[in-house]
Amino acid sequence: MTPPMVKAEAVHKRFGRLEVLKGVSLEVAAGEVMCLLGPSGSGKSTLLRCINHLEKINSGRLSVDGELVGYRQVGEKLHELREGEVARKRSQIGMVFQHFNLFPHMTALDNVTCAPMRVKNESRDGAEARARELLDQVGLGDKVDAYPSQLSGGQQQRVAIARALAMEPKLMLFDEPTSALDPELVGDVLAAMQQLARDGMTMIVVTHEMGFAREVADTVVFMDAGVVVESGKPADVLSDPRHERTRAFLSKVL
């Protein structure tokens, strides 16, 4: 049996005295799309950042594709990974942020080619050919030379998706990719993500887009106050939640 792409077991994360994740357990199979819902401050972003090792967890186990995040286990002991190893693992996980975080001093094309050239040492020609292809896929074939400040929010977010895909990740993390966008721009971004899901990408998506969750997700997870309250098929969780907290949350966002 292939290991799950992401496996979290009783993951705890503290910022100083504030405990943000209080024992989160979940599994994402390869090729699966998981949507993560929950009120503000429930720890959704923190969980994504832990999976990418942008934050260190304090206890529990977190693994991606069968390998521990940030550590190597030798016997009973955990050894911290060196920076280069952490970076190499991160390069296999794509991340898309709420505020795009495109590099403002680079054109769309350079944003996409930057990591393949610097991290994977790809040739400029190869990286550019692939970047043009990816930008074409997200409908921005004519914007390769534009700087981020010359693009709309929706276009920027699609460049960000192309940038993450250029590293050929095996897992994509989306942190509220559409919540900074004007309503009429949301559709294009969701369409790009839906296409990605159809192509078999494993995805964890933090979102408040219930339509997307219902249509694209294989699993919906509802988090509150640092724990997973309930999870299951979108039809079950979204239409017939078992927990009062889920019901209260859904009645507010729907």
Binding site: R88, R90, S91, N101, F103
Partner: peptide, 23 residues
């Protein structure tokens, strides 16, 4: 510089030094 820039660079697999120098 917005810390999100370093997050984005590191999530792409850049090391701290690469992030500093390029981004």
């Amino acid at each position: 510089v917005d810390p999100g820039q370093a997050d984005a660079a590191q999530s792409l697999g850049m090391t701290r030094l690469q992030t500093m120098r390029r981004i």
